[in-house]
């Protein structure tokens, strides 16, 4: 059983953090960031061509983490692979000892740096979860029997700030029925809104790790408010970070405050540092985790 699954089962407040593989093959810094997380987080998410920008792959990176005794969460999107490749990569993950798989639809290609690439989307987040569940039962999408069954701890994502929220919750329910055992959320900056969301999904009985994106500047906050779906940074935070002389210290303080305010509403936190990975241990210190 995966360490992440054990941790969630134990009832402790779980911590995950994200690393992004580099564009290229120099993995020193990325592995250094992962080392900073050692002993501080329960699992490390590895993004899959985040924002449709071509990079080193998630599967190989998860393997590198595993080799070093770190617990990876293999993020898989449906943007770049058809069902044959996705099924095969799920089998690959299993033989490499990678159990945690986060199933996502994936950003559209035009948002990244290869806008002329062919978008695949043969499966979507829901059918990818169904596929992984089927493989665990010993069969593939063609109905053929597998030689040996893989096992996974399957995760999915949800956007608590989606507007409208209801279709997002209906899809979350489908993800649970398709096999999702835990959820990590899009960035949340409004605890009251998150509380409303938690009430709406209580019946699902599935662990949720609230997403925290480190706020780097007022400019970043405004950019997210304008461009990132389901994310709203309140004006008070924007003013706070704008006035702060030391943006890094303020960013740590805001993240820690958000974690503390939402800690009792969910089962864990998922930190997306987006370049500020080195600050994650300090955020955890400040949040008392």
């Amino acid at each position: 059983m995966s360490n992440l699954s054990e941790a969630l089962k134990s009832g402790k407040f779980v911590v995950t953090a994200e690393i992004g593989p580099p564009k290229g093959v120099d993995i020193e810094e990325m592995l250094g960031d992962a080392e900073l997380f050692r002993g501080r987080v329960d699992a490390i998410n590895v993004t899959d061509q985040q924002s449709s920008v071509m990079r080193l792959g998630s599967l190989a990176t998860c393997h590198l983490l595993k080799e070093r005794g770190l617990e990876p969460v293999f993020q898989m999107t449906c943007r770049d692979r058809n069902r044959i490749a996705l099924e095969s990569d799920l089998l690959c993950a299993h033989v490499l000892g990678i159990e945690n798989v986060l199933c996502l639809t994936g950003d559209y290609v035009s948002l990244g740096d290869h806008p002329e690439a062919k978008p695949v989307f043969d499966l979507d987040s829901v059918s990818l979860l169904e596929t992984a569940t089927l493989l665990q039962q010993g069969a593939d999408l063609a109905g053929k029997e597998l030689k040996g069954r893989p096992n996974f701890f399957l995760g999915a994502v949800v956007t608590p700030g989606a507007d409208p929220l209801e279709p997002q919750i209906i899809k979350m329910e489908k993800k649970v029925r398709a096999g999702a055992q835990f959820f990590q959320t899009q960035a949340v900056y409004e605890p009251e809104e998150f509380e409303r969301f938690v009430k709406e999904i209580k019946h699902l009985g599935v662990p949720v790790l609230v997403g925290i994106v480190l706020l780097k500047s007022a400019g970043m906050a405004r950019f997210m408010n304008k461009n990132v779906a389901g994310v709203h940074v309140p004006d008070s935070f924007i003013e706070e970070i704008d006035r702060a002389e030391n943006k890094r210290e303020k960013s740590i303080e805001i993240a820690a405050r958000l974690i503390k305010e939402m800690k009792d509403l969910c089962q864990g936190v998922h930190i997306m540092a987006i370049g500020w990975e080195k600050m994650v241990p300090r955020v955890l210190d400040a949040a008392g985790l």
Partner: peptide, 15 residues
């Protein structure tokens, strides 16, 4: 754009 069959992705903003 993604031709999804199972409902919206997380990428809609104010609809």
């Amino acid at each position: 754009p993604k031709g999804l069959l199972n409902g919206p992705c997380g990428g809609y903003k104010h609809g």
